[in-house]
């Protein structure tokens, strides 16, 4: 949680400086150790899709968003009001630099991925030599081992940018999340024997997620859920690849399928050996909000679905 300490320090500095009536200076120190200092609180923000999903529900509206995919397919942006926001990128590694320049951004808010030592969009978009850096400084929170911590980082960041977290909708989202989390923990506690497996299904193989590689799965574990850790994760530490002949290697009571694309579940259902996993056979399949949660509203919605699935699951299915 070192970055949060740094952040708190940055906040304190910002607050201290904000006491000056005019020319409020703003500064933010990210986890890569860089501090961005501006003469005024930035208002014209260009954000990555993930960062936008973290900020918009808190009342901070960027002027431009660059996404890793078509906005319609972007899971983090789903359900958010994007009216009036210019889309300046719809593919990973790409950004329309002329459009960004026309937006005259004060700052670019992205996410720092410590494992890759890279910012959202990849080196071409946000790397040291990228033209984007010539237009505005890039900063933002770090994707660590908890989505909840990340959302809290966005709260701090949004506050420094002038957001009022006591706005009714913002407070309601947070309350909904707290309620959903309490219900989740309760449902999990009621089924101490329940084991869960998180997967992504391809036509070539079944990919079993290592919980440590996904912030929300670490959150779930923290809240009591017993997620099976695969024996051999790949070199990046995210998944174990199972031939469909080996699909029944792990037998959870409940399967979570990556819900970034609806076709993942379709692909799984089309495999003859999908149902060799007893939970699949029993229909104990729920959605895994893989890697994309960035705000309380979405988190609450996903937790509610999971809580329902956990309550309906049979904890003794595979014992």
């Amino acid at each position: 949680m070192q970055h949060r300490t740094l952040l708190a320090a940055a906040m304190a500095a910002a607050v201290a400086l904000s006491s000056a009536a005019h020319a409020q200076s703003w500064s933010y120190t990210d986890d890569s150790g860089q501090t961005v200092t501006l003469d005024e609180v930035p208002t014209r923000i260009v954000a990555s899709a993930d960062a936008a999903a973290g900020l918009i529900p808190l009342g901070i509206r960027p002027v431009g968003i660059y996404a890793d995919s078509a906005v319609a397919d972007s899971k983090p942006l789903q359900g958010l009001d994007l009216a009036g926001i210019e889309i300046v990128g719809q593919a990973w590694g790409e950004i329309d630099i002329e459009k960004v320049a026309a937006l005259e951004p004060d700052i670019v808010i992205a996410e720092y991925w410590p494992l890759d030592d890279a910012w959202s969009g990849g080196p071409g978009v946000t790397g040291a030599e990228s033209p984007l850096r010539a237009l505005a400084p890039i900063t933002g929170p770090t994707v660590g081992d908890s989505i909840l911590a990340l959302v809290e980082d966005y709260e701090d960041l949004a506050t420094s940018l002038g957001a009022d977290l006591s706005e009714p909708q913002v407070a309601a989202d947070k309350a909904a999340f707290e309620e959903a989390r309490a219900a989740f923990e309760e449902a999990v506690a009621a089924k101490p024997g329940l084991t869960v497996l998180a997967v992504w299904a391809g036509a070539d193989a079944l990919y079993v997620a290592a919980p440590a590689g996904a912030s929300e799965l670490v959150d779930f574990e923290r809240w009591g859920l017993d997620i099976i850790t695969p024996e051999v994760a790949d070199d990046r530490g995210y998944f174990e690849t199972l031939s469909w002949e080996q699909a029944d290697k792990y037998q959870p009571d409940l399967i979570l399928v990556d819900n970034r694309s609806a076709t993942t579940l379709e692909t799984a259902l089309a495999q003859p050996t999908w149902t060799t996993i007893k939970a699949a056979q029993a229909g104990a399949v729920a959605e895994w909000p893989a890697y994309w949660l960035r705000n309380y509203g979405a988190y609450a919605g996903e937790l509610e679905k999971l809580t329902a699935a956990i309550s309906a699951a049979d904890e003794n299915l595979t014992d």
Binding site: D68, S69, A70, A91, E94, D204
Partner: peptide
């Protein structure tokens, strides 16, 4: 493919050539 990484993900499997997953 450069414009659409999603397409790339889906095509990757097909493009390498495989006998698995064909029914």
């Amino acid at each position: 493919l450069l414009m659409s990484p999603t397409t790339f993900d889906q095509l990757r499997f097909w493009q390498v050539g495989s006998l698995a997953g064909r029914d």
